[in-house]
Design a protein around this nucleic acid. Structure first.
Lengths: 129, 129
DNA sequence: TACTATATGTAGAAATATCTGCATATTTCT
DNA sequence: AGAAATATGCAGATATTTCTACATATAGTA
């Protein structure tokens, strides 16, 4: 799905975090110094690719992420799992378990919290019906 | 550290899997049709960047991955965690636990296996001393 | 109105990634 | 030696990413 260049990725990160912004604001949050027009060329490309929307508001244009953070995360995580874990996210889980060195008790507690959170998400999405 | 383009990534994957190969062999394993010379331009760039080594063997040059699969994995996983999990790999673990829906028993078993494997790796690396 | 600050539009330069075509060299086989 | 198959060398075309420079537009204000 998504395949962002490094510069595009920075823009998406900033807009995911802060919501709708105009170029000058994004520029301030950029992790390295960048000229306004250079930044705007990223924005134009991202709009063309359908990852951002743009609307005039007062004097300036405001940009907003259309491609969702979560779906990008899933897509990139999937790519990583395909490349390095033979497509099995259980293998990735295994890798993290080896690295994290949690006690069995801590691990079970983490699992409980994780599944609680995902249930909350599910039920809030179920409101629609 | 590493930051591979899509084409470079394919080459690295193939060499990580198969070891030392010559261009025509890599070409056969490439996931899409690619001309020999196009593939070789990837190889030249990867040698220049220090990710591959090259040595003459018989008529042809053979290429071998110098940048390790594991370190690339760690680096890319780290980037993903920085971008989407606030730098905490525990947050990524949490995400996977929510998705995987393992029973507590299965989870603990997985942890046991994961930590055993990583201990084996540790001790084999310790042979050097 | 004229000045200033802020935005946008646009053309295109520079660097890099991807790919093509063709000439040349080396091995192998007859 | 001569032909066919296999490799390499290299020049450069094409596409994309990243960036620069400058012209123009618009709002607010002295």
């Amino acid at each position: 799905m998504a395949q962002f260049t490094p510069g595009e990725m920075e823009v998406m990160r900033i807009l995911w975090e802060h919501g709708e912004m105009k170029p000058a604001e994004i520029q301030e949050h950029f992790p390295r110094p960048i000229k306004n027009a250079a930044l705007r060329s990223y924005l134009t490309i991202l709009v063309d690719k359908g990852h951002l929307t743009r609307r005039g508001k007062g004097k300036a244009f405001y940009y907003c992420a259309k491609t969702k953070r979560e779906s990008t995360f899933r897509s990139m995580l999937g790519d990583l799992v395909d490349t390095f874990c033979g497509g099995s996210s259980e293998a990735l889980l295994c890798h993290l378990l080896a690295k994290e060195k949690l006690s069995p008790k801590e691990l079970l507690e983490l699992q409980r919290m994780a599944q609680e959170e995902s249930n909350e998400t599910d039920s809030s999405e179920r409101k629609k019906s």
